[in-house]
């Protein structure tokens, strides 16, 4: 499908995409993955302990 050489990917994404359909909603698995990862990242960023918090002392 793609032009020529130089596609040395470890995971070959050069096939027709997979799509999930629900009523009028249609989304590619790749886009859905990106979106889910965004939400997961956001939630992890909210709850993950931030390093060094115990060392904080008042200054200034």
């Amino acid at each position: 499908m793609s032009q020529g050489w130089g596609l040395g990917a470890l995971v070959n994404l050069d096939h027709y995409g997979h799509y999930l359909n629900w009523h009028f909603i249609s989304i590619s698995v790749s886009n859905l993955t990106v979106m889910v990862l965004m939400v997961v990242t956001f939630v992890v960023a909210l709850f993950a302990p931030f390093p060094g918090r115990r060392n904080r002392r008042g200054s200034k």
């Binding site: 956001f42 992890v44 931030f50 918090r53 904080r56 200054s59 200034k60």
Partner: peptide, 14 residues
């Protein structure tokens, strides 16, 4: 060189 103590979350790195 300092930030208010409430700046303590991974959300700040984005």
């Amino acid at each position: 060189d300092t930030q208010p103590a409430y700046v303590a979350s991974w959300i700040y790195v984005f």
